[in-house]
């Protein structure tokens, strides 16, 4: 592989474009492929199989050939509501796990740049903030403020958009009250039960990094269940 091609791959990854690297294992030739775009003479005869690997988000060698395909997919979007202490540790974990984090917090004093360097924080109420983030059933929500004014609109958005993971911080009692409010707002029990509350796997930890670890563990587990 040429260094220039490596740089192009890194650039594509950073811009969150879905693509594949196709390599001929015999002669070492490789190229970057994006669905809908053309392939060179070297690889065009394998286009159908390459598209198939791409559809299945699969890496591997095409059967009976020496053509290897590696697909790059977009990182999963995780929206954190509440730029609180736990969120600072979640940002660290998410980086190594390749989740794409957005943080929403209308409270300016929490969402300062000093607390979250190199991190874009949306300093708006959830209803407004979600207009800036494209979300779908492959998105996840971690609600951390346990303030109904901030968490509830975000939870409602996540339920309506069928996020694959929704978690909300708070004690059992806090969660019961939350469920009651959502019921009164017209959500059914399946929708309400889709919320992981209290959030996180049972780890027993109490500190902010420990709670962040239990949340991120649950998020990873739910990601692979789907």
């Amino acid at each position: 592989m040429k260094h220039s091609q490596l740089k192009e791959i890194i650039k594509k990854k950073a811009s969150k474009i879905e693509f594949a690297i196709v390599t001929n294992l015999e002669n070492g030739l490789s190229e970057i492929y994006e669905p809908g775009k053309s392939l060179s003479k070297e690889f065009v005869i394998h286009k159908e199989q390459i598209d198939n690997f791409f559809k299945l988000k699969k890496n591997g060698v095409i059967e009976n050939t020496e053509i290897f395909i590696e697909t790059y997919i977009r990182p999963i979007k995780v929206i954190i509501v509440g730029a609180v202490h736990i969120a600072q540790y979640l940002v660290d974990f998410a980086k190594s796990l390749n989740f794409e984090i957005s943080i929403i917090d209308p409270r300016g004093y929490f969402a300062s740049e000093q607390r979250f360097p190199d991190m874009k924080i949306i300093n708006k109420w959830p209803d407004e903030a979600f207009k800036e983030i494209e979300t779908n059933e492959n998105s996840a929500l971690i609600a951390l403020t346990h303030d109904p004014k901030i968490d509830d609109p975000a939870l409602q958005h996540a339920i309506n958009k069928k996020f694959y993971y929704i978690g909300a911080l708070g004690s059992k009692k806090t969660h019961e009250n939350r469920c009651q409010r959502l019921k009164e707002a017209g959500f059914n029990s399946d929708q309400i039960n889709s919320i992981h509350g209290p959030i996180g796997i049972k780890l027993g930890g109490r500190s902010a990094p420990e709670i962040a670890l239990s949340i991120i563990a649950q998020l990873v587990s739910e990601t692979y269940k789907k």
């Binding site: 890194i10 990854k13 988000k57 997919i73 990182p75 999963i76 390749n98 989740f99 694959y164 990601t223």
Partner: peptide, 11 residues
């Protein structure tokens, strides 16, 4: 669902 699998080796 598959999480994007990336250990930043290329970087």
């Amino acid at each position: 669902m598959k999480n994007s699998f990336d250990e930043k080796i290329l970087e």
